[in-house]
Write a protein that binds this DNA or RNA. Structure first.
Lengths: 209, 209
DNA sequence: GTCTATACACGGATAGAC
DNA sequence: GTCTATCCGTGTATAGAC
């Protein structure tokens, strides 16, 4: 993903070949695919659309990917890998459980509404279009990601700072945060990403007093 | 929707021809369509699937609806009409703003996870498949529904019982509640609908003390 | 690694008989 | 109001030249 190219976390993932270099043919295709899948949906996006987006003919696509579904799966897998690393880094910088949670919320809001947002939306809305065997693979990666959240929420719960159950709170947050993509428009209107994060914390009764 | 057939609110809506009688040919088709659209997605559901679900041939479908999209739109329109009426009734029975909010949350959770849940999921996940002109029509109906929520949340905010902004809180709740359809399974496991409602209230810092 | 050309199946929608 | 038959466009994927 070209925009966050300077990010050292992305750089190390590329070096380990866990995500594609965004300047490579494969990387550029996956970025365009994420955008198209989010805008039109996976089913309504044709292989001709995908090829045109990177300036090749549809037949040439199948030199890089065996099937259209393989492209969807690659978008999802690489997105989770990148976001797990970003999340881990964000949480590591915070001290208290409360600050860890705030860092996670802010990082997830940034993933959803920032430059990886297209791919994050695909992860949520195009799940059904993935074959069952691919779903199982992606789910495994998701577990690592979710454990980051759960351990932080469980710590807060121990400290009696959380109103509801940690598991349920995480599920509520998953829905609430991913839904922001349908309405949050940072460019027009005053609410910044930090302001939105504050609102989420306030909703949970964890506002800075 | 045959299951809630005895519901007097549904009966009056049918009498006013605002929703189809679930025992009519049209009503049965819309129920099956909601189920198929949720399970497979709108695009992956063929007119042959729809016809087979009600035991007719695909050509015969077009005697009832001019296009496939018209079926999707009808599912959405009738679902909003029914749920607005159910919501209004739930809110009217409560006295305090806090109890009104609880009634709205419980009613929406019931819509999402109960017998109209298939249609509610379609409303969230198949939005993009609706043509723009149809989207505008459905959006108008949604406004009425949303105003029910906003007036209650604004009242709570006046009473200083709400941590975050009312508009933002509603949007967070929209995401959080609709997401329950992906994980909440009342049949297996102890959490009842009332228990889940309590958890949501607790998350908002509005637990019964 | 990309091109052109095309196979081949499937999906939405229509026509006209009953 | 449902049937059968069918049109026709579109979509995924392949073949083989360059």
């Amino acid at each position: 993903m070209a925009f966050v190219n300077q990010n050292p976390i992305l750089q190390s993932l590329i070096a380990e070949q866990l995500v594609s270099d965004p300047s490579s043919a494969r990387g550029r295709l996956l970025n365009e695919a994420a955008r198209l899948f989010r805008d039109k949906g996976y089913e309504r996006t044709t292989v001709r659309d995908l090829a045109a987006a990177v300036g090749i003919q549809s037949g040439s696509l199948f030199h890089h990917f065996r099937t259209k579904e393989e492209i969807l799966k690659a978008v999802m897998v690489e997105t989770i890998r990148l976001n797990t690393a970003l999340m881990q880094a964000a949480a590591d910088q915070a001290d208290s459980a409360r600050e860890k949670l705030r860092a996670l919320i802010r990082a997830e809001l940034e993933s959803i509404n920032g430059q990886t947002g297209e791919a994050m939306a695909v992860l949520v809305y195009e799940w059904r279009s993935l074959s069952e065997s691919s779903q199982a693979e992606v789910l495994e990666l998701r577990d690592i990601y979710e454990n980051l959240w759960l351990s932080t929420l469980q710590q807060l719960s121990k400290e009696h700072q959380l109103g509801a159950d940690p598991f349920i709170t995480r599920r509520m947050l998953t829905g609430a945060l991913s839904w922001t993509v349908t309405w949050y428009r940072p460019e027009r209107g005053g609410l910044t990403l930090d302001g939105l994060t504050d609102q989420v914390m306030a909703m949970l009764g964890l506002a800075q007093c």
